[in-house]
Amino acid sequence: MKNLLLTILLVSASSSYAMEAHNATIIGHTSTVSGGDDKGRAIEGHIENRENNFIVKFFKKYTEKQVTKSKCECAKR
């Protein structure tokens, strides 16, 4: 267990949660779990409410033309 380093790199398909945004674009997202020693270790970690509400709300606004000159790059992933 000593010097145990557990690193999980996740590039998420859904990059936001219950987000409200206007003229904002997610351009990158990463999650990592790390850390361990002779006393214990990290096993798993995540964001619980990883719904893609942002994308839904964003494109709803976009189609209503309330948001201009913006795009949601995360929607393509």
Partner: peptide, 28 residues
Amino acid sequence: TYCFHDQTHIRVTNMGYFSNNSTSSLTS
């Protein structure tokens, strides 16, 4: 030292904004 780390880069145009509420979970 036993950590969950979530990082997001967000581009915001002038007068734009964003807000969010989220819950992180770590099992150790």
